[in-house]
Every structure is written in C-alpha cells, then in structure tokens.
C-alpha cells in the first residue's frame, strides 16, 4: 500500500500490462523521452525501450491509423491523444474506421486497442483544450468509453481496457491528475461496465462520471449533514453501461440526478434518463434532473469556468431544491 497519484497511475497501469504482454506497445506525441506533457508516462521508455514506447510527430491521424493497423495485425497498441479536443482532427479514424471495421467486415477484424486522452476542463485551458468529449465517443457504435475517477480505477480500468478485445476510448480527467490515494501493491485488473456506489443513501441517486464523481461526493456529504442521504454512483464506463446498478438504485431512492461535464445537448445523462423513465417510470417519485455544463464552449477565465462546470455547491443546491418541491 502506498500513495499513488492519478497521474502516476497511468504509467503504472501501462507498465503492468507491458510487463505481462509483449504485444502491448505505446505511441503518442511526447510520450516517450518527455514522459508526457502531463507527466503521466514517465519511466516507460526507460523500462521498455524505444521499440515499444514511441514518440510520434504531431499527426493524430497517423497515430491512430498506426494503432489501428497494428491492432488488426496482432499487436495491442495504446495510443495517446494529448488533449481529448484533438479527437476532432482524427475523428475519421476513430468514428469511420476503428469503430466500424469489425462490423463492416463481418467480424473478420478485431481491434484490441486503447486510445487515452486527457479529457475535460477545470485547468483554465480554454475552449480547445478543455472539452469533455465522452458524449462524442458514446454516440458511435463500436467504441467502448471508459472514464476513471480515482487513481486505483486508472490502474484497474486501464488494465481492463488494454486486455479488452475491442477499441476503448480511455478518458483521463486532467483536473484529477494531482489527486492521490492509497493503492495496494501488485496487479490490479478491474471490469468494464461496472458502476460503483461511492456514497450510500436512500433519498436520491446521483449518477456521475470521471471528475464529476468527487464533486457529487462532496455535494452528498454536504447534504448528509442536512439529513438528505444520497447514493452516489460512479458509472466508470459509458459503454458498456451498467444500467442494472442505476435502475436498482433509482428503484430504491425514487429520484435520479445526473452530473455531467459534457455540454447539455445529447450528454450521457440524457440516455441514462431515458432508460430510467422507460423502464422504471413507476418507481420515480419526482422528475429526473440533469446537472450539466451549459451548452456553451468552455470559457478560460477561472471565474467563468467555475460557473460553467457543475460544482459541488450547484449539485447540492439542485438536489436540495428538487427534493423540497
């Protein structure tokens, strides 16, 4: 057991899998010699060498194309897209090629690959380096979408993603890179498609993802002091989606709140809300409420960014008001 930051958990997860499987290779911009612009991949080049840990040009299409071609011919590549916003310059390879290849070829091609990216806001990088793009990825059939909220989950879910036979978009919360927790030594391998209850309570269910999880927990702690007990569910992956855990929780509490970092329209909370209202409408005791970033590009100034992103205070206030009415 030792303190592990979310940042260092990335390299630990990759190293764990590279040690056990020689077909795991890693490529991206500044990932090898520089150890990553977020310092998430330090030490990998030293341990595994330049044959397996490779710096690339600023060529996102080439990075992901290379990962795809390698995955369909026997390797298990991990590719880094430095900021999730940059998916927009290589979305063809992601959405048209990687996601569809297996289906279009009648199952001939398998693509065991992971695309990691630093996702979301909170660091004042402005609208082109702060987007939460989980809803883009979730909209494309053929992509798994994973977003850990803790250092331990980074290791375990990254390992599970690397071992998974399908393409995984692995979204790291750049606002959580500095967060640390005690993590046990040894191999950690988690399971995709399993949500986890991180707070217990019978009055309402708050479903969150990635960096919204600690905020939802802080809100739940604040509400608990007022006697409002919320269950906080960390979804951990959007595809596969652990609807069973959500439905069981909402059936028990009667209320659902989703906390999404993505802009409002077509955010994942809309899909979760739709499933809950279609399948257990009778168990709801009040309307479902979505707490999201407004439908705007993310502003840069601290004061504005803070207003835009869901905060613990906004979550608590929204839940408080909804339960009181």
């Amino acid at each position: 057991m030792a303190k592990l930051t979310y940042r260092h958990a990335v390299a630990r997860g990759i190293a764990q899998e590279m040690r056990r499987d020689d077909s795991v290779v890693f490529l991206g911009e500044d990932v090898a010699a520089a150890g990553g612009v977020f310092k998430t991949t330090g030490g990998l080049l030293e341990e595994f060498g330049g044959r397996r840990v490779r710096d690339t040009p600023i060529s996102e299409q080439a990075i992901l194309g290379a990962a795809m071609g390698a995955a369909m011919t026997g390797l298990r590549p991990i590719a880094e897209i430095m900021f999730a916003d940059f998916f927009a310059v290589c979305w063809d390879i992601v959405a048209n090629e990687i996601a569809k290849m297996r289906y279009m070829t009648g199952g001939q091609i398998t693509l065991p690959l992971v695309i990691r990216a630093a996702n979301g806001g909170g660091l004042r990088f402005g609208a082109q380096h702060s987007q939460a793009i989980e809803n883009w990825a979730m909209a494309i059939p053929g992509l798994k979408v994973v977003a850990p909220s803790t250092p331990r989950d980074v290791v375990g879910l990254l390992a599970a993603s690397i071992r998974d036979p399908d393409p995984v978009i692995f979204l790291e919360a750049k606002s959580l890179y500095a967060v640390s927790e005690d993590v046990e030594d040894g191999e950690i391998v988690d399971t995709l498609g399993t949500a986890r209850a991180v707070r217990d309570g019978g009055d309402a269910t708050i479903v969150a993802l990635g960096p919204m999880v600690p905020k939802a927990c802080a809100a739940a702690d604040e509400l608990a002091e007022e006697g409002i007990r919320c269950e906080v569910l960390d979804l951990r992956s959007l595809v596969p989606l652990d609807t069973r855990s959500v439905l069981e929780s909402v059936a028990r509490t009667g209320r659902l709140f989703t906390v999404e970092e993505n802009p409002r329209l077509c955010g994942w909370g809309a899909e979760v809300s739709s499933i809950v209202s279609e399948e257990i409408f009778g168990d709801l005791t009040g309307p479902i409420v979505r707490i999201t970033t407004p439908h705007i590009p993310l502003p840069s100034a601290h004061a504005l960014e803070e207003l835009a992103l869901p905060s613990a205070a906004r979550i608590a206030e929204t839940v408080r008001k909804a339960l009181a009415s």
Binding site: A66, P77, N96
Partner: peptide, 19 residues
C-alpha cells in the same frame, strides 16, 4: 474515406516491423 487507409497501412507495416 479518402486518405484514411494510408495511416492504417503504416500500422500494418509497423506491426510487421515490430514482430
């Protein structure tokens, strides 16, 4: 999609080189 498979060809070639 015009151009998409040139990067993918880099990947099959990389895989052969790696293996």
């Amino acid at each position: 999609i015009i151009g998409a498979h040139l990067p993918i060809a880099c990947g099959t070639a990389w895989s052969a080189q790696y293996r």
